[in-house]
């Protein structure tokens, strides 16, 4: 199999869907000749032309609402926002419109659109270009929320997202765009609500999302050398969430740590932690369920401060040890 980047895996899924389904198109700022702020759409204009790769004005409100209307009328738009932070300007269309339309209309419409959101910190882009607000989206009934951590998952989940009949929020991590892994050339989809056990282990279950999956795997390698074996689970889709895989794992390891980049307070990790606490896994716990998330601060510009604001590999190692060695 060949290795491709996370960015190219996302592009490949979009391209394959656009080849097979005329209704799929993409719109966004600078996605044409520029190829998108992170190069994800590079080359797509050449293949599909400006009708289906629509370079828009800087108008997040208009383009998100436009995606909703087009989706209601049978198109399957993919909306690229340059940074997930700019979704604030599009939120009315996503939350007040797309998410509830079907429900309010008694099931008489559906809004099949994908909103692609490059998120996360680590690039020195400061407070308005580095946020991880996936919990906001997961809180809204009617939205599907996907957060892939590998090129393989990104490709399969993008295909699933495009073919899903609901509004789908697709979180991409800016720090993962250049990461590579084996990705089949053929089309494949990954179902929603199926977590992936990225590494098996015995002593503790780490449930990690986004870039924290990679950091947890690195932590696992080092912990292994010290005789601590952790299992790493990536839910891959936050809504719907694969509860069984998480619960079964915790029943096996008897310890749980949720690791996420977003501000720890009220983050999606809190949802996972309480899910475990309320499940049959509770009786098997040998230690309190723990969370490791970001400090409750806007993301600072200075690189050392920025690193300190979100969990790093060493923080995960330390946290795991503090739980296992208690």
């Amino acid at each position: 199999m060949r290795e491709i980047t996370y960015a190219n895996a996302i592009k490949e899924a979009m391209v394959q869907e656009m080849r097979s389904n005329e209704d799929v198109f993409i719109l966004g700022e600078d996605i044409g000749v520029f190829g998108g702020a992170f190069g994800v759409t590079s080359g797509m204009l050449d293949e599909f032309g400006p009708e289906r790769v629509r370079n828009t004005p800087i108008s997040e409100s208009a383009i998100s609402g436009c995606a909703v209307g087009a989706a209601m009328m049978g198109m399957r738009p993919i909306l690229e926002l340059q940074f997930s932070d700019f979704v604030m300007i599009a939120l009315d269309n996503i939350v007040n419109q797309a998410a509830k339309m079907r429900y309010m209309f008694g099931g008489k419409t559906h809004v099949p659109m994908v909103v692609r959101l490059p998120s996360g910190s680590g690039l020195g882009m400061a407070a308005q270009h580095s946020q991880s607000l996936e919990a906001w989206m997961a809180h809204v009934p009617g939205l599907i929320v996907i957060q892939p951590s590998t090129p393989y998952d990104a490709k399969g989940l993008m295909k699933t997202a495009i073919n899903n009949d609901n509004p789908v929020i697709f979180y991409e991590h800016k720090g993962l765009y250049n990461s590579k892994s084996d990705v089949p050339e053929d089309e494949y989809d990954i179902p929603l609500g199926v977590a992936d056990v990225k590494k098996e282990g015995e002593d503790l279950t780490v449930i990690a999302t986004g870039i924290m999956v990679q950091r947890s795997l690195q932590a696992a390698e080092q912990l292994e050398k010290e005789g601590i074996s952790i299992e790493v689970i990536d839910p891959r889709t936050l809504v719907p969430l694969d509860k069984e895989t998480i619960i079964e794992s915790v029943i096996k390891t008897n310890r749980a740590l949720v690791v996420y980049e977003a501000v720890e307070r009220s983050g999606y990790g809190a949802e996972i932690a309480s899910l475990i606490g309320e499940s049959e896994a509770f009786d098997f716990l040998d230690a309190p369920i723990s969370r490791l998330g970001g400090i409750a601060t806007p993301i600072p510009y200075n690189p050392s401060l920025e690193k300190a604001a979100v969990p790093q590999v060493e923080d995960i190692i330390e946290k795991v040890k503090s739980i296992v060695q208690k």
């Binding site: 020195g124 400061a126 308005q128 510009y301 200075n302 690189p303 401060l305």
Partner: peptide, 19 residues
Amino acid sequence: AELLGKATGYGKGKGGSMH
């Protein structure tokens, strides 16, 4: 100093060029 992310910068190194 702000552009270099230093404590003596306008935003004490927290904002950078865009802030």
